[in-house]
């Protein structure tokens, strides 16, 4: 069941999106996210949809694989959508028992759900097409200027890459411990909140223990190799912009300008 999680995972393929410089993809994600919240009408959203789908198409990542990542937030989407729909004041459209649906509520609910879905797909597009190593490199170089303000950029980037790297490991670990406890008769499908929470103890305790063990092993291994932070550290594969990257920057800016214009116009 936990193997289904695709957020933060890398999907190996040979596509234009995979080859792009990670800084370009970070730039895209940033502007795309701003775009999602700038867009407030159907036209701007159509443009976002076109942009997103052409990017997905270019990435060669199967669409079904990407949508799987949404499964985890379905409940969140439903709750957020329902609250917006029923609790926003405005012109009443329909009444279901004690609940009323208003025009503003319906619009907000639609907008909210669309934004969340687009946000998940858009951001997972970046992690799906970028290896954690390149992602960290990109982040570190992009945030480079902040170093002057004493922001520990290298450390932040390293922490992020370790976190990303450990997602699949912990997923696998969870799977293993679950199997082992199931073999001892543990039941993870019991009903009832209290019993369900109790059933999680045999899973969570070993998982935490193993996470701490892994963290300390990793720290030890890094220290054994004289790791001392970012200062004076050179890269085996430094980042270089290619022509494709420059074109991509231009397209992203045009795309963002389009979204802004559509918001102002309508």
């Amino acid at each position: 069941m936990f193997r289904e999680i695709t957020i933060g995972q890398y999907y190996p393929a040979d596509s234009l999106l995979h080859r792009l410089d990670p800084r370009v993809k970070l730039f895209f994600t940033l502007f795309y996210m701003i775009g999602i919240f700038v867009a407030d009408n159907i036209f701007a959203f159509s443009l976002l949809t076109v942009g997103l789908f052409s990017a997905v198409k270019l990435s060669k990542v199967p669409f079904g694989y990407m949508v799987k990542g949404l499964q985890a937030i379905i409940l969140l989407l439903i709750i957020a959508g329902a609250f917006n729909m029923f609790l926003t004041p405005g012109q009443t459209l329909a009444t279901v028992g004690p609940l009323t649906i208003t025009d503003v509520g319906l619009k907000n609910a639609g907008l909210m759900t669309a934004r969340m879905i687009y946000l998940i797909i858009g951001t997972s597009l970046m992690t799906l097409t970028t290896t954690p190593n390149r992602l960290t490199d990109g982040l570190e170089t992009s945030l480079g200027p902040l170093q002057k303000l004493n922001v520990p950029v290298h450390e932040i980037a390293l922490m992020m890459s370790i976190a990303l790297r450990f997602i699949p490991i912990l997923v696998e670990e969870t799977d293993k411990i679950m199997k082992a406890q199931m073999a001892r008769g543990a039941d993870f499908e019991t009903k009832g909140l209290v019993r369900k929470a109790k059933a999680m103890v045999p899973l969570l305790v070993p998982l935490f223990v193993s996470a701490f063990r892994r963290a300390s092993d990793l720290a030890m291994a890094m220290e054994a190799r004289c790791y001392h932070g970012g200062e004076g550290r050179t890269k085996m594969k430094p980042l270089h912009y290619s022509k494709e990257d420059r074109v991509a920057y231009l397209l992203i800016l045009l795309f963002f300008a389009g979204v802004v214009v559509l918001r102002i116009l309508f």
Partner: peptide
């Protein structure tokens, strides 16, 4: 299946990781 798992016991690799 729960009954089967008590009849066919399974000790996984590194079973000490399941202690809690």
């Amino acid at each position: 299946l729960k009954d089967l798992r008590t009849r066919v016991g399974m000790v996984f690799q590194y079973p000490e990781h399941q202690l809690f």
